[in-house]
Design a protein around this nucleic acid. Sequence first.
DNA 1: GGGTGATAGATGCATATGCATGGAAATGGT
DNA 2: ACCATTTCCATGCATATGCATCTATCACCC
Lengths: 153, 153
Amino acid sequence: MSAKTAESSVRLAAETWEALFRAQVAVMRRLQDSPAFKTLALNEYDVLFTLSRCPSGWLRLNELNDHVLLSQSSLSRLVERLGKRGLVERMPAPDDGRGIRIQLTEAGWELQKQIGREHVRDIAALVSPALTAEEQQELRRLTEKLRASVSSR
Amino acid sequence: MSAKTAESSVRLAAETWEALFRAQVAVMRRLQDSPAFKTLALNEYDVLFTLSRCPSGWLRLNELNDHVLLSQSSLSRLVERLGKRGLVERMPAPDDGRGIRIQLTEAGWELQKQIGREHVRDIAALVSPALTAEEQQELRRLTEKLRASVSSR
DNA sequence: GGGTGATAGATGCATATGCATGGAAATGGT
DNA sequence: ACCATTTCCATGCATATGCATCTATCACCC
């Protein structure tokens, strides 16, 4: 690749990320203001959501940490708060004496579903008018590809 | 639109946002760990960057707030910190006695350029191997369109 | 011009976050 | 089996953040 091509390639990548990041900020700003998140911060909901989608029904703390933009210590305390509110249960991991299992309680399931319904409506109200179905599919494909590439290194 | 179509439309929007959000988390996690952000948090750099791109050379606090995912009070204190570090200057707005102008100092310009160079390299290292140039262009287009639609309401 | 409401930004206070570190358990090499 | 290293999670402490509120200015209307 020539020097010139390399330069424009770097520029394109930067502009792409910038656009993605700003879009995320714009959408997130709206979502956070929704009444759905009066009782639970978005980060906290995200943990409930991740647990609800997880096939085994439980996750280790470090597995959760891969999904959330939080330091390990912050996530540890976030889960502690959720535990105190009775939304998740923390049990020692059977196969690893260092770890803990985290799973939703019944109340956790209920709250996740309730907030989730509102949240999905909020998302659709923002995304659906902005992009056609084909564009959304393409955006989903591209961001999944980006995430897969980034996570695998 | 039938009930069934409406439902799948909502689902598509939710999945699209989910994919975009996770990609953002995955990339951001890497970027934050870069040595480029040892001296300055990413939010703080973002303010310097926004100021550096701004045609007039200065912005009002509330204008800055549109670009950043921070509350008004947090941004106010963030700018105060940047001021104390000599990276930005805060002057009363000439046309509005309530407002303040914020602009980069010479040191602010320097630091923005220095971190910016590293940051752009980090971004390219993550994005370029993940997507072709055409895919990046399409991703940029779609996210710009999404942002424009969301911001205009 | 005086009064009413809206807007820009600062600040007190409670809480959330990250860094550095701690302890405890797993892993690996010899 | 033993020791060193690494991994997992918790915690002390300083800092960053958000909410509610405050002050000052602006905009509007009569």
